[in-house]
Every structure is written in structure tokens, then in C-alpha cells.
Design a protein around this nucleic acid. Structure first.
Lengths: 249, 249
DNA sequence: ATCAAGTAGAATCTCGACAAAAAAGCTGAT
DNA sequence: ATCAGCTTTTTTGTCGAGATTCTACTTGAT
């Protein structure tokens, strides 16, 4: 198993010459895959499976798994290994509720402490999001990872001026969880939803300093997304579907 | 944590029941020591030092360190190891502010969804806290670890009925950070503060369903603690003190 | 004296093998 | 057929050695 390292060729996003460790590399890739909903099939996550998939030894893989478990993306039981956190309707509801609480506070603080610099970043984030394609051009049934990145960046830009990196971190964590649900339930295309319009309204009200209006728009945005997820995944998602596939061996 | 293990090798010398995994044991002990402010001297945390102190190999120690870093109690730089998160006045201010935001929401929700069971738990937590000694009987200058446990349990009981384990987890995280500051700056004894009285007032207003009053009492409680910490640690704590000691060699 | 380059030392990080535990499979009796 | 108890297999968790990287120190030149 040759260690196929990705150093030497600097990725465009990694301008800092910081050489990453294997543990961090596995962490990043596995995290992306988790958020992409790429491996929701298996409930259990054997370390040997991760080792063979990402081409690293057991030690860095275990370090990555420990980080993800501490973040709440994975679960862990002593002497029983790691597993993907289960999903459920009640958990989605609780998640959305918590998210609304925190984001409302973050939004209001962000508006109260806005600066010109922050406004420009917000405009920029909205512009980039509007330019990106929602789905992959070659396959309109799958989400565009680039759009997901920009979407997350936009929502982070909204609360960037709230003045608490703790609150920003918590919102990020909840955002990760939410996108996991969104991508598991494969948000249906073209359900008559004007996504970019929703985002634009939120941004405009933010820029106008209309805190109440922005909060209302944002919470509706979250609740609508959650409702669509809930519906689709209450009727369509079968947690045992993946296990059948895993049995082939 | 009531996992009674059928571990034949009792090894009573260790005291701590190293029941499950070494990584979890090191995690628990190191976390306790961090919150106790027991090792704030050195800024850097060499894994070999942890290995020799807690008697485990490098692998479980690294797993424990990764968990703590993901929780925000430690910092980490690739290829540069782990370090204790620095403390500062601005960080304490930001922490306190964030904590007030989250705890206010949690408190209001907890009151709104209170049950008889929850009320009883709260009464119990207050009673236990009132019974415990604030300082160690044999050495009145150091805090009583038992009191710290009960104090944390009381504050968690306040928000236990808020209906979101996410929010509870975030509040716990902030509570950990806050107690780190409190114990670093060695909260002064006998500054005329009626601690048990403050806690009792909060609990009484909670039980009365007086949300506004409870919130006011709780936030004042946090802000007073923070102010005392801030004062003592702005004038008394020198972050370079530990480094100077480290240079002797 | 300051600064740069090169070297020796120390720390981090990773790998492969081993021990311990849990899960799966098997036999035999009720 | 079911279940307890034992054996086999799989998986987790741990250790020690080695490779890679960072840090501190010495040396030499402007």
C-alpha cells in the first residue's frame, strides 16, 4: 500500500505552506464524505474499512475518527468502535429548533455590530452563491459540491459579525448536521422553490439593518428546508436500505 | 458511567477504575486536570510528558488529546503538537457574553417546558450544593473538587428541561471554559459574596415560573463571577510567568 | 554585533505487529 | 426449534520502533 501522499502539488485552496498530517487529511476527506451523505449506508464504521479507503494507517485514522466523534458527526462506544450517528425525525426537529435559537441571536448581534467590511463580504458571498449551479450540470439529480460550499459560506457570512467565535462555531456545527440531513434526503429538485430569492431577501434585510425582517426570513428559510427534508425522509428514507448492500461480500 | 466491568485484574493501586479503554481514561483524567487548572504553567503539551504522567502509550494519549482539541480545551497545529489554549481578558469577555446568550434561551425554554420531575431534580441539586463545602476543609485556599462537581450539576439542572441536547452540550462546553478561568484566577475567598444565596434565588424564581426574574438573577451571577475573575486575573495573572519558569534549565 | 546557513537534537507522526475484547459460528442438551 | 456454553473469527485498542518534521544551537560571513 504505497502512501499516495498529496503533498508537493499545492492545492489552490492551501496557500499556506502548512504541511498537513495524514490524520488531518483523513479527517478532512471523511468529514466531506459524511456531509455529502456519501456513506450513510452503513451504520457501523470499521476502522479497517476507513484505512483501506483513504490509504492511511490505523493510528491517523483513529485520530481522525476521534475528532469527528467529539464534533458529534460520529458516535463512539468504548471497545465497540465508531458508528455513524443515526438520523431521525425527532432529532431533525430538535436540531432545527436549536439552530433557529442560535442563529436568531447571532443574526441580531451581527446586524448590531456590522461594519462596511462585513457588508462587502456578505454581498460577495451572495453574488458567488447566485452564480453557482445548484445541481451538477452533467447530472441534475446530484447536488453540486461547489454550491454547497458557497451556501455554507453565505450563511456563515450572515453571522460573521456577531462578535463571538464560540457562537459561530456552534452555528457551524449545527449547519453541518443540517446539511447532513439535507443531503441524505436528497432535496428534491424543482419543487417550485426560489432558493436564491430567499437568500437574497435575507441579505437585503440584513444590509438594510432590518433585524426583525431578516430573522423572520432566515427562520422561515430554515423551517421550510427542514419541512421538506422531513417529508421526504419520513416517507422515502429507509435506514436499512444500505445494510442490504453491505451484506454483499 | 455505571459500566460495571468484569475486569479480573483489579489493580487497586491505580485507584481509578480503568475499566473501558486507556484512551478514555486518559481523556477523563486530563480533562479533570485541565478544568482544575492544575497544569496551566506550561503552554505546550508534549505527548511524551502526558505519556509519562498518566501511564499510557502514545496512541491512546494522542486519541485523548485529539478529543480534547476538538472540544476546544486544547489547541493543535499540524506537525507542531498540542498546546493549552491561551487565556486572555478579551476571550473571557467574549466567553461570558456568549454564555449569557445561550443560557438565557435555555433557561426560558426550560421554564416553559418544566415538569414535576425536573423541579424535583432542581431542588435536589440545590440542596446538595448548599450542603457541600466551598473550599477544602484542610486547606481553605484551594477549591473543593466535590463542590465544583455539584456546582456544575446545579447549573445543568437549571437548563435540563430546555428540550435540546445540542443546547445543553454547548452550555456545558462554555461552562467548562468558564470554570477553567475561574480556577486559574483562584477565585478569592470571602469577598463578601453570598454564593449559595445567589443560587437559591435563581432556583426559586425558576420554580415560581418567573422567567424574567430567573434570567436576570442568572446573568448577574455569571457577570459577577466574570468580573471578579477579570479583576484578579488582569492584575495578578501573568501569562509569561510559566514561560519564565520553563526557561530555567 | 547581526544575520544567514547548516548541523545536532528533540518532538511529532506513522507504521506494522500484538493483545484484548466483542461478534459470529458451532455443538449438544432440554 | 431454542438456548446455554464453548470455539473460532473478526474487530478494536495498544505498544514499541522508525521515518519525517520542527527547534535550538553552532558556525561563519557581512
Amino acid at each position: 500500500m504505497g502512501a499516495r501522499l498529496t503533498n508537493g502539488i499545492a492545492l489552490p485552496g492551501e496557500g499556506k505552506g502548512a504541511k498537513s498530517t495524514l490524520a488531518s487529511s483523513v479527517y478532512q476527506q471523511l468529514r466531506d464524505d459524511l456531509l455529502r451523505g456519501a456513506l450513510e449506508a452503513e451504520s457501523k464504521l470499521r476502522v479497517e474499512w476507513v484505512v483501506s479507503r483513504y490509504g492511511a494507517g490505523a493510528s491517523p485514522v483513529r485520530e481522525a475518527l476521534n475528532r469527528l466523534a467529539a464534533e458529534g458527526l460520529l458516535g463512539r462506544h468504548d471497545q465497540r468502535g465508531f458508528f455513524l450517528m443515526p438520523v431521525s425525525a425527532t432529532e431533525l426537529e430538535e436540531l432545527t429548533r436549536t439552530r433557529c435559537w442560535l442563529e436568531e441571536r447571532a443574526l441580531r448581534e451581527s446586524i448590531a455590530h456590522r461594519t462596511a467590511e462585513w457588508e462587502e463580504q456578505l454581498v460577495l458571498a451572495l453574488h458567488r452563491l447566485a452564480r453557482a449551479e445548484r445541481r451538477l450540470p452533467e447530472d441534475p439529480t446530484t447536488n453540486n459540491p461547489e454550491w454547497e460550499k458557497l451556501h455554507r459560506a453565505f450563511h456563515r457570512a450572515l453571522i460573521a459579525a456577531c462578535g463571538s467565535h464560540w457562537l459561530i462555531g456552534f452555528c457551524d456545527q449545527l449547519s453541518d448536521q443540517a446539511s447532513r440531513y439535507r443531503l441524505i434526503s436528497q432535496n428534491a429538485p424543482g419543487t417550485g422553490r426560489d432558493e436564491i430569492g430567499e437568500h437574497r431577501i435575507i441579505a437585503e434585510r440584513m444590509l438594510d439593518g432590518d433585524a426583525d425582517g431578516a430573522v423572520e426570513a432566515l427562520l422561515n428559510h430554515y423551517r421550510l428546508t427542514a419541512a421538506m427534508c422531513m417529508e421526504r425522509f419520513a416517507q422515502g428514507y429507509d435506514p436499512k436500505a444500505g445494510l442490504a448492500k453491505a451484506r454483499r461480500r
